[in-house]
Amino acid sequence: MKSMISVSALSKEFVLHTQGGARIPVFDRLDLEVAAGECVCLHGPSGAGKSTLLRSLYANYKPSSGHVRVVHGKDVVELGSAEPWQVIEVRRRSVGYVSQFLRVIPRVPALEVVAEPARLAGVPDAEAERRARTLLDRLNIPQRLWGLAPATFSGGEQQRVNVARGFALDYPILLLDEPTASLDAANRQVVVALINEAKARGAAIVGIFHDAEVREAVADRLFEVTAYRRDAA
């Protein structure tokens, strides 16, 4: 299978200057390959560094050392050394990210929140909006909410808008941070279906899924982040 994400010897350590320079090592010399059409589930107890790894794959966190490489069109981009505009391009076209919480933008209506990524990637307005409608519909967001800003939505509704946004474009790489948390069973099934559809079209997926049922339904393999702790024996 074609590799889409390649992590080699990645180490991450936080230095908290505001707290007397405390050092918090998270993982050390971590290697991970993710192929197209594969879904890797990051595994480990709370605090193991799953989110940190996921954020590192999105260049939200900078590596202390090591490499994160992703396929971007015909290129391979090294996220640690790429120019900011290159990272923005990678995020715009190649790597989608569903965060744990929706970062609400004041006044922007839900439909626009969902359509925006496709629009920014150059999808014509009408097509971007059509996709957004389909996704909101599948995720059971009542139509009367589409024109409203999600700030006033319930937690579950916000999370579904967030998931819809992440699937608005057929990203070759998808990073999912607890996409089914705070969702009911019916909506969990929709998300599972979306993930499996993405896999089927060849997306490489890395996710954190606490729900065993979801994990069972989508993950091809588990990746133990704790295995790369420096203190791991």
Partner: peptide, 15 residues
């Protein structure tokens, strides 16, 4: 070693 080798063709510099 990384399975992905960095591209030979470097994305053209932006003006």
């Amino acid at each position: 070693m990384s399975a992905l080798m960095l591209s030979e063709t470097v994305t053209p510099k932006r003006q």
